[in-house]
C-alpha cells in the first residue's frame, strides 16, 4: 500500500566544502514522515537539518537513495516534473528569502502566481495566510522596513498560502518571541489536522519541548536518530 507522506530511503548527500573536498552532509537517512503527522528534527548547527529540508523539498537531488512523496519517487524525476511537484510543497527557509522590490503581501502571492488563479483570489489567499499568523498589518509594508521576526512571518505565510500538501520549515522560530511561537505552534497543529506532512527542523529548545518526545528526532553529522 502507498504511504501517504514523505519517505526517505537511504538518502545520502555529499557536497564540496570550501577546500573543495567532498564531505557527507546527509548519510544514509531512512525515515518516514507520514501525512497528518508532525516531525521535529533537532540538531546542532551543521548537522544537516537544512540540507534534509532542501532534499525533501526537491531543491536538491540526493547523491544516492531516493525521496518518495505519496508513493512517487520524486527525487528521480527530471527537473520539469519536480518543478510541478514542488507546487505541493510549502517551504520556509532558514533565511527568509524575500524579494526586496515588492511588498510583503506580494511576496506571499508569488507562489500562487503560476497556478493560473484570478488575481483577486490570489490576493485573498495571501491575506488569509498572513491573517493565520496574526501579521495582517504587515501586508503593505516593504521588505526593507520589516524586522527579522516579521520577515520570518512573511516567509511562513508564503509557504502556507499554497495550502501545502507538504510543509517543510527550517528553523521557523529563530526570530520569534513567545507570541510568534504560539502562533506558529497553532499553525503547525492546523496543518497537521489538514492532513499535511509537516517537517520542522530546529535547535530551539522551546519548539522541541512543545511536542511529545515521539515527534522529535535528532540529527547529527548527517545521520538521523529516532
Amino acid at each position: 500500500m502507498t504511504t501517504k507522506g514523505l519517505v526517505c530511503r537511504d538518502v545520502s548527500l555529499s557536497r564540496r566544502n570550501a577546500e573543495n573536498q567532498e564531505h557527507m552532509v546527509l548519510d544514509g537517512i531512512d525515515a518516514v514522515f507520514p501525512a497528518g503527522a508532525l516531525r521535529v528534527i533537532a540538531g546542532p548547527t551543521g548537522a544537516g537539518k537544512s540540507s534534509l529540508i532542501h532534499v525533501l523539498g526537491g531543491l536538491l537531488r540526493p547523491s544516492s537513495g531516493e525521496v518518495i512523496a505519496d508513493g512517487e519517487p520524486v527525487s528521480r524525476w527530471i527537473s520539469a516534473h519536480r518543478d510541478l511537484w514542488r507546487r505541493k510543497v510549502g517551504i520556509v527557509f532558514q533565511q527568509p528569502h524575500l524579494m526586496t522590490r515588492i511588498t510583503a503581501l506580494e511576496n506571499i502571492m508569488l507562489p500562487l502566481v503560476p497556478r493560473g488563479r484570478p488575481i483577486g483570489e490570489v490576493r485573498s489567499l495571501a491575506l488569509g495566510a498572513l491573517d493565520r499568523l496574526g501579521g495582517i498589518g504587515l501586508a503593505g509594508r516593504t521588505v526593507s522596513s520589516l524586522s527579522g521576526g516579521e520577515r520570518q512571518i512573511i516567509s511562513i505565510a508564503r509557504a502556507v498560502a499554497v495550502s501545502p500538501r507538504f510543509f517543510l520549515a527550517d528553523e521557523p522560530t529563530a526570530h520569534q518571541d513567545a507570541r510568534g511561537l504560539e502562533c506558529l505552534l497553532r499553525l503547525l497543529e492546523e496543518l497537521t489536522e489538514e492532513r499535511a506532512t509537516v517537517v520542522v527542523t530546529t535547535h530551539d529548545v522551546r519548539l522541541k519541548q512543545a511536542f511529545p518526545r515521539e515527534c522529535v528526532s535528532g540529527i547529527a553529522n548527517g545521520t538521523l536518530m529516532t
Binding site: D83, R86, I91, H97, L110, P111, V113, P114
Partner: peptide, 15 residues
C-alpha cells in the same frame, strides 16, 4: 537568485 527563489516557490522553467 531570483530564478532560484521563484522555482523553489513552485514556478516552472517555462513560467
Amino acid at each position: 537568485y531570483e530564478i532560484g527563489l521563484l522555482k523553489a516557490l513552485g514556478w516552472g522553467t517555462g513560467d
